[in-house]
Write a protein that binds this DNA or RNA. Structure first.
Length: 493
RNA sequence: UCCUGAGUAGCUCAAUGGCAGAGCAUUCGGCUGUUAACCGAAGGGUUGUAGGUUCGAGUCCUACCUCAGGAGCCA
């Protein structure tokens, strides 16, 4: 055969090849037949396209091969791209030739059908489930979220510094850790947060972030938990609580913007209501019109861009009124713990909550769901009681019983996506905190050193990628947000 | 760890204590515009495991196993 092989084209960009003969390299996704007419649907990872094969138009061998081909067999297809209103994507391909790279055997058909499946079956076949359009779309959105997250910090003066994954002790004394032998006598633990380590790199480099997997051995069995998940954590020297709240807001806005820029089609496949995401990044006027609370009264307002030049450090103790002119156009509502408690109290009295929230306690899942349901965008809750928060959090100088910390709750009941705080910068205070929490002082000596050698106010937060993917894609479980989820009862495949 | 629920054909699910069923998938046949195509036929079962009650158990009882999602904890 002297005819040259037509150029290879991606299905997603076939509209640019209308009228041309191209080569598709992919898999047979579905096949419908109507007598002497075949409708194979091909996928190649970028999308799907319907082919059409009239018996009279192709060699007998091509027709018979396709007619008997099994689903998910790998194929190289050549054909001419044609616009057709009857095709689901608006385009279809007139198949001219097909080469079967590997044929799925008849006796072991591809297990994932286009019909419904149960969770257990799908997770057991996760390696094949990934091929379905919805799962592929989710992974594409995930990739953009991860890229946008890193991109935000990379373009705002942050240096990526990767903390160790094997650690000698708990970062916080609380959560359970995965333990392993470390050579002869020692134990090592998989990291549950890089925070303590990036505090060190922040004091070396100013503005840093880490991005990697973290591990929690908690026996949590909910739609929001994985035992292995990815977290991105910025840490900023000479920053206080209000600065990182501004940072978190700009950061999330950037990610949502990028997802909307690049994934309209994927979000449609996933079935996401895009209007809900557009509302998140809508301008401030909408937020300020929100009648429920006036959350701006007690926070300083520094534009995130001010961080780039190390704003004269305005600690959260110096709460200013914050002129309207300096307000970020993309403002998320901010509630103090006290304000959030009052909101829950009111809701309970109005019969909208089953159980009352006890002042001083952390918010439970139903509490968080209620609070976030009151807003159309993420809501920040700051200044929790110090007693229920981690040892390294700086007390609020206005009220020492509160910690300078913030949780960001995603809307629509997706729960906490960010947890952050200003860190204790006093050597003596940190040391006594470590002792109060019965943590081994020796293991934290290096961490204390950071307060001995040029300590400064600093703050940061951590964002769980999978929860953000679940939120932005509108998924009901984080297990679909990562190629191979690790959960309490599952480590296969 | 606690609470609740579910395990029946490859998959999704039916079956009053009384013959083990359907749709999809697979195989065969039909159909030139199908959209999870449709129509006809065939094959496909140790009802999660082990005991027990009963003339008779998928169904009732006990224990165990597996999975699910909710609480707690967290991102």
């Amino acid at each position: 055969m002297s005819t040259p092989t037509p150029p290879v084209a991606a299905i997603a960009s076939l509209s640019a090849h209308e009228g041309q003969t191209v080569t598709l390299r992919g898999w047979l996704y579905n096949l419908r037949a109507s007598g002497k007419l075949l409708f194979p649907i091909f996928r190649d990872g970028t999308g799907t396209i319907q082919g059409i094969v009239p018996k009279a138009a192709v060699p007998e061998e091509v027709f018979e091969t396709l007619k008997n081909l099994t689903l998910e067999s790998s194929v190289v297809v050549t054909g001419k791209v044609r616009a057709d209103s009857r095709a689901p994507s608006g385009y279809e391909i007139d198949v001219e030739n097909v080469e079967v790279v590997q044929r799925v055997p008849d006796e072991t058909p591809f297990p994932i059908t286009l019909k419904e499946h149960g969770v257990d079956f799908l997770m057991e076949h996760r390696h094949l489930w990934l091929r379905t359009p919805r799962q592929s779309a989710i992974l594409r959105v995930r990739a953009t979220i991860m890229r946008a997250a890193a991109e935000y910090f990379d373009t705002h003066g942050f240096i990526r510094t990767d903390p160790p994954i094997l650690t000698p002790n708990a970062c916080e004394g609380t959560s359970e850790l995965f333990e392993m032998d470390y050579f002869d006598d020692d134990k090592a633990y998989l990291t549950q947060s890089g925070q303590l380590y990036i505090e060190a790199t922040a004091l070396a480099l100013g503005k840093v972030y880490s991005f990697g997997p973290t591990f929690r051995a908690e026996k949590s069995k909910t739609r929001r938990h994985l035992t292995e998940f990815w977290m991105i954590e910025p840490e900023v020297a000479y920053a206080g609580l209000d600065e990182i709240m501004d940072l978190a807001e700009a950061f999330i806005t950037h990610i949502v913007t990028r997802v909307l820029e690049h994934h309209r089609a994927d979000l449609k496949v996933i079935g996401r209501d895009v209007a809900k995401l557009e509302a998140v990044i809508a301008l401030t006027a909408a937020t300020e019109a929100t009648p429920i609370v006036a959350p701006f009264s007690s926070s300083t307002t520094i534009l995130p861009s001010a961080l780039s030049s190390f704003a004269p450090y305005s600690l959260s103790s110096q709460r200013e009124a914050g002129g309207a002119a300096s307000r970020n156009a993309h403002r998320f509502p901010r509630l103090s713990y006290d304000e959030a408690h009052a909101m829950l109290d009111e809701a309970y009295k109005a019969g909208k909550l089953e159980n009352p929230h006890r002042y001083g306690d952390d918010f439970g899942s139903p509490d968080e769901t209620y609070i976030s349901s009151q807003f159309d965008r993420p809501v920040m809750i700051h200044r929790y009681p110090a007693a229920i928060k981690a040892f390294y959090m700086q007390p609020d100088p206005v009220d020492a019983s509160k910690a300078l910390c913030v949780d960001v709750l995603a809307p629509e009941g997706y729960g906490e996506i960010i947890g952050g705080s200003q860190r204790v910068d006093s050597y003596d205070l940190l040391k006594s905190r470590i002792e109060e929490h019965n943590l081994p002082l020796a293991a934290f000596q290096w961490y204390l050193d950071l307060r001995k050698y040029g300590s400064v106010p600093h703050a940061g937060f951590g964002m769980g990628i999978e929860r953000v993917v679940a939120w932005l894609c509108g998924l009901d479980h984080v297990r679909e947000t990562i190629p191979f989820a690790r959960t309490l009862n599952r480590i296969y495949p």
